[in-house]
């Protein structure tokens, strides 16, 4: 208990501050050894600017079953596919994502239903899939990690493409 009240004693407080300084130096050295910022991550952050799209409309993430579904009602590990919704002004995309190890199966639906060329953008580049007349598309073998969809609405001439916000699948 003397330890708790020690800070009130000026001598103790000074000792404490020396100990803090020493601890701080230790931490500074440790963090750079044990958990330094990864150089690849820094490089990826620099390069992410190349994904900038100036002509596209942004579809914001409005629903993610992982965070928006009450967790109390589900039993661990039995939730089924993850559901995501992205919304732009007159267009939305719904995704059903199933994890198969480090791969992801994605089934999508465009609303209003329409054909589109869907570019799935991810770390390794991009994968092209076609949405049919009913706005349905799927990709079986996507690598887990940050992804975003860029939808070129082929049925609407002159329409700006729509991109979804990036999310880790």
């Amino acid at each position: 208990m003397t330890d708790d009240n020690g800070a009130a004693d000026p001598q103790q407080a000074e000792l404490r501050s020396d100990e803090h300084d020493a601890l701080w130096q230790e931490l500074r050295m440790l963090i750079h050894k044990a958990d330094p910022v990864s150089p690849q991550v820094l490089q990826a952050a620099r390069e992410s600017f190349t994904w900038r799209t100036i002509d596209a409309e942004l579809a914001a993430l409005t629903y993610d079953s992982v965070v928006d579904r009450p967790t109390t009602s589900v039993v661990r590990g039995t939730e089924g596919p993850r559901l995501l919704s992205f919304e732009a002004s007159e267009f939305s995309v719904e995704l059903e994502v199933t994890a198969v190890g480090a791969r992801r199966r994605v089934v999508g639906q465009l609303t209003p239903p329409q054909p589109a060329r869907v570019e799935v953008r991810h770390r390794a580049g991009h994968t092209l899939v076609e949405a049919d007349e009913l706005g349905r598309f799927r990709t079986e073998d996507l690598a887990a990690g940050p992804s975003s969809l860029r939808c070129h609405l082929t049925g609407r001439r002159g329409a700006a493409p729509v991109v979804t916000e990036w999310i880790t699948l």
Partner: peptide, 16 residues
């Protein structure tokens, strides 16, 4: 952590 960091920067690219 790498995924979080990367997604955060990609989000900023879209929202900048």
């Amino acid at each position: 952590s790498a995924d979080v960091t990367q997604v955060t920067w990609l989000r900023l690219v879209e929202h900048i």
